[in-house]
Every structure is written in C-alpha cells, then in structure tokens.
Design a protein around this nucleic acid. Structure first.
Lengths: 197, 197, 197, 197
DNA sequence: TATGAATGAGACTTCATTCAT
DNA sequence: AATGAATGAAGTCTCATTCAT
C-alpha cells in the first residue's frame, strides 16, 4: 500500500469534520480526535490544514472519476452516458453525503485559494461531460450548435445545485432518483437533434 | 434616508473584501478601512461579522429580485421571461462582479450556518424561475411533466456555475452573452412542448 | 441648589447600575440611559467613570454620616449610641439596598484604586464608632483596655458582613432587626465593664 | 501529582496579579508572564479568566480550612478554639498577604457573579465559627441566646475588616497579634456566660 | 448645556503549528 | 513514527471617552 493507512484515516475524518463544521470552523484537533491520532501526527502526513482539503479533494474526486468512467465506457449511446453521469453524481450524495458536502463547499471556498489552486481534478471530472457531448455531436445525436464547454458547466451546475438542495434538506425534497430522471430528461431534450426525436 | 449612509458604505466595503479574501479570511479592520470608518463603528450598524454577511445578502438580493421582476412582468411569453432571467443573472456577474462572487460564496458557506439560517431571500429569487415555468405550463408552452421545483434548481445551478467559471477566469472563457444564449437555448429546448416547435 | 439636578440623577442611576452589575461591568451608557441623559452629558458632571464612583461614595456617605450623627447626639448613654449606630447601619440595607451594595463593594474595589484614594469619608464614618467607645470609656461604661481604633474596625466589619449576607440572600436570612439586636448585644457585652452589669 | 505543576504556578501568579491590580484590571498576559508560560497555556488549565479566580478561591481556601481545622481539633475549650481561629485568620494576612487580599476582594466581587456562584467553600469556612459557638453553648460556656448563624458572620466580618485595614496600611496600624488579642477578648467577653466569669 | 455617533485602544480567547520526548 | 503540551500570533468585539453639532 503506497499511501499509509493513517493517511486515509485522516482524510476520512476530515471529510466528516469539514462536512459538519465547514473548513474554517473545523479544528485540527477535531480531525485528529475523529481519526484516532494525535494532533501532531496529522503534520506527518499533511503540510497544513489547507493541504488536507486539497489532498482530500484530489484523491476522492480521483476515485469518483475512475468509477464513473468505468460505468460510461461500457455504453455506446451518448444519451445513456449522460444519464449515467447524472445519476452517478446524484447517487454520490446519497451514498457519501459528507463527501458530497465537502466537495461542493470546496469549489466555492475562499476565492483567494481557488484562484491559486488550478483545480485540475475538477476540470478532469466535468470534462467527462463535454467528452460525452462531443461524442454525441459526432454521432449526430446532439445538436452541433451546442458548445460542449458551456453545456458541461450548465449540466454540472444543475446537478450540483440539486445535490446542494438535497444536502441541506434531505427530507423535504424530491427523491434523488426522480431528480436525476427529471434533470436527465430536460438536458437530453435540450441537447438532442430535433430530427432524432 | 431610512438606512444610514454608513450602513451602505460598510455593506459595499464588505462586498469587496469578502469577494477578495472570502468571509473567513476577511478581517473586520479590512472592511472598516475600506469603508472609511473605525472598526468599532461597524458594530453600531451590525451585530457581528456574520450579521454583515447576512444583511449584505438579504439587502442586495432583495434589490436584484426587484430589478428582475420588473423586467419580467413586462413580458407575456414565458420563453422570453426565462431568457431574461438567465441573461439578467449572468449580466450581474459583469456589472457587479464582487457582489456576484459574494452571493455565490455565501450560498455554500459553512453549512452549519446555512442550516440555521433559512435563506428566504434566496428562495424568493429562485421561485421566480418556478413561477415562470408554471406559467409556461399553464399556457401549454412548456411540457407538463417537468417539475418546476426541480427545474428551477437545475436552471439556477446551471447559470450559477457558468457565472462561477467566469468569475474565476474572466479572460479565457466564453463571452457572457454567448453563455446566456447557449444556456437559454438548452433549457428552452429542454422545456418546450415538442408540438410547439 | 448648589449641585445640579442632573448631577444627582446620574449618581442615583449609577447607584442602581453599579449595584446590579458591579463597577467594572457597568457601562456608562447604562448609567446614562437610566439617568435619562446622553452618554456625553455624564462627562459634563464627572471626569470619568471612576470619578462617578468616588463622588457617589463621598456624597452619599456624607449624608449618612449627618443622619446618624443627628440621631446619636440626642443620646447620653454610649451603649444606646452604639445600638443606634448598628441599627442605623443595618437599617440602611433595607431602606437603600442598592446604595448599601455599592458602598460595600466599593470598599473592596480594586486595591490599586483604594491605595491611591484616601478614603476620608469612610474614616469619618467609622470614627463615629471609636468616638462612642472613647466616650464610654471616659464615662467608665466601657472597659478601658479596649482599643477604640481596633474595636471600631471590628464593629464596622461585623455589621457590614451581616449586611452583605442580607444583600446576597435577602429571603433566607435572619430578620434585620433581630440581627441588629444580636450584634448589639454581643458587642455591648464585649465592651462593658464587668462591674457595670 | 494529581494537579499539574503548571496549574499551581498559574494560580500563584494569579494571586499576585489579582492582588496587585484587582481582578478586572489584571490581564491574562500579566498572569502568563508571571507564571512563566504562554498566554494560551493558561487556557489549557482554566476555562477563562473568571475560572482562575474561582479555582484559586476554592483551592486555596480549601487548604486554609484544612489547616485551621487541624489546629482547632486539638483543643477542648471553645474559647481557645475561637482565639485560634481568629489568630489564624489574621496570621494569614501576614504570611500570605496577596492571597488574603484576593480572597477578600473576591467575596465582594461584582455581585452578579457572586449571586450565581454559590460560594460553598466560604460557607464551609465560616461554619467553623458557628460550630465552635454551638459547641460552647452545649458546654454552657457561651450564652445560649446568641444565634450562631449571626455570630459567625459578626466574628468573620470583624476579623476580615481588621485584615483589610492591615492590608491597606501595613505600617501605620496596630500589630496583628495585638489586633487578634483585642478582637478575641471582645468577642469572648461578648459570648461568655456571665456566670462563667 | 446637551447630544450621541464615532473612535480606537486593548483584552480575551482560539487554534494551527511546533518540538521535546 | 507518534505524541500532545505548549506556544504565540492574531482577530473579534467592547466600551470609555471625545467632539462636531
């Protein structure tokens, strides 16, 4: 195992603590306690508090990218691919609520940091969407005038906002599956060639 | 003048400072300096740092709601209304970049706060979208199976994410007008009754 | 009237506020509000917060000295005089509870101040006791070996501590009259010439 | 060692600083400097500034109670016990002047706090006096009509006030031993059964 | 005289980070 | 590698005092 067991324990603890309190209100000692290590131990694995957040983000989103890519590459139909991406992203909220909260929060974190940190993992993630769209356009399934660079943002934003709602009010909101279905339908209708219908 | 001049000066300064540094990295003394008042003066107008953020949000989004409602109520066609809402929201980013940054950041602020603070102004804002959709459905323009409560989130999320991109990389990205046009087209196509076309 | 009406209003307000919150926790604005004047007005009558405390003390204890002296000088018997002094001091607690609290607190205030401020009014007050004792010794009523300078402290301390108890727990404690009677009896027995009995 | 070395160091430093400046004028950094620790270290041992005062009080008065009880329980004669209590209390002033100052100050501290904080240690301390008196009454040495609950306050107040005088003007006042002797004599004469004499 | 908005120095407290063990 | 006690910088907020009106 390249990455120590404790490294992952700390990441997991940080996910929970950041999700509960937010990055700035989270204390290193909270993370340490939840990870079952001493405060100082954290600094053997991470440079500083912000480094935990960045590492967490890169590693966890890396895993998510692998998962969703594996699911998508089995498919042929770009429409189906998009449905899978959307369902997968929203499914993450149910399966790993705290992680979803942190990833979401992080993207909007203090802009000073975001500007400094070129978030390549996140770009890789949403570029899955634009790749799907491009493929659909090549296949003549999606309308050619849609700009994949804009559409990917629109689609990601839409599902992320639905996720945010669900995170804040898990009970009072629409069922996640239904949300995924609705969002998929809207975007598919919005992207498809009229002639295709 | 109901609200003192200094109240607004502090809000304006806070918008700039929060946008630049983020809420947690912003210091009260930064805001005070930029507002041209003493640190203590801020506490004559706001209870605490977080109260500045909340007040800022409520007051500024209140103005935005008024503006966009005024524009929309002149229109008859729900499709046009949606275009206006989208264009208006994205236009805000160009006209008032710092404000847009803060409002965006704020929505994802430390979830602990967000859970406590029922963000009624924000809900009022996105309910403009669902009202438009409902109207379109009544008029037979938009598809009846679309759930306005989900679609409003999707649409808001899409434009907000596009705004975020533009805020972070104003230069390298698509033109705002083009973005608005693309997003409008996707959603209109996604919402419209096939028969209408 | 030599001393303005507002001067007394501020003193009265300060008595209440100091009694309720203590000197350090009391705010000038509290006193101003209770006195029905503006914060700044207080500084037309007093140099600073501590000056209010000193003035309050000197003026109010001055009145108390006058009152008790007037009562005592009607008497011939030093034993009766002592009883009157004790009853009068404890009676103050019932009649003017807040004032009693402040005077008491003040005597033990931050020693830095107490050392700087020679509390002549207070000395004048307890010297009434030593004068009574001396008179009693001259008349052969009180034992000559008692040192008036020590006895005055002991007597004042005893009644002040009883007052303190009553201030803190007005309900659960002995009746004030009974306390006065008991304390008088103890000290009279302690001071009188055995032969006198 | 149950309580860390630093805990006691901070208490000792606080005694000195509170005695010199008073509780409210004392700064945490003063205490830290005098204790030879960092400011933050204080908060590893105490919750807040006021907690230092309370802890100091409880712990130090606890020790004093133990000492005086040990001395008293060797005696049979209640008169002698009272003398010992008085001498011991006044002796404390000479041996531990700063501590005496703080304990005294504390009893009259901002009444808001005193009302909240049921000062059980102090009550335990002065209940030593009432226990002595009750014992003397049972033995027929002290007069039965004296109420121990009042007398304990009177005696404590008397010696505390003498202590206060000595703390403020150590030079110009009576010798502590003489004061103790005088106060003892007054109270013994005041308490004893006439027939006993 | 009177006001009360404004000032700004200063204190308590927190907590990321270090380092001796 | 691991600990966790200790550090000390830094920020929010308070409030006595001032001064233009």
């Amino acid at each position: 195992m390249r990455i120590s067991d404790k490294h992952q324990k700390i990441i997991d603890a940080a996910v929970n603590v950041f999700a509960e309190k937010g990055f700035f209100n989270a204390r290193i000692s909270d993370i340490a306690r939840q990870a079952g290590v001493a405060d100082g131990t954290i600094y053997l694995y991470f440079n500083n508090k912000y480094d935990i957040l960045i590492s967490l983000f890169e590693e966890e989103i890396g895993k998510i990218i692998l998962e969703v890519k594996k699911l998508i590459e089995k498919e042929e139909d770009p429409r189906r691919m998009l449905e899978i991406f959307i369902a997968q992203h929203l499914g993450l909220v149910r399966r790993r609520k705290s992680l979803a909260e942190v990833l979401q929060m992080e993207l909007r974190q203090s802009n000073k940091f975001m500007r400094e940190y070129r978030n390549t993992k996140f770009i890789e993630y949403i570029d899955i969407i634009s790749a799907i769209i491009r493929k659909g356009q090549e296949m003549g399934v999606f309308r050619p005038e849609v700009k994949p660079g804009i559409a990917k943002r629109a689609i990601f934003g839409a599902i992320d906002e639905c996720a945010r709602l669900w995170i804040l009010n898990p009970d009072t909101t629409y069922d996640i599956n239904e949300t995924a279905a609705q969002v998929s339908r809207i975007f598919l209708a919005g992207l498809e060639q009229p002639s295709v219908q």
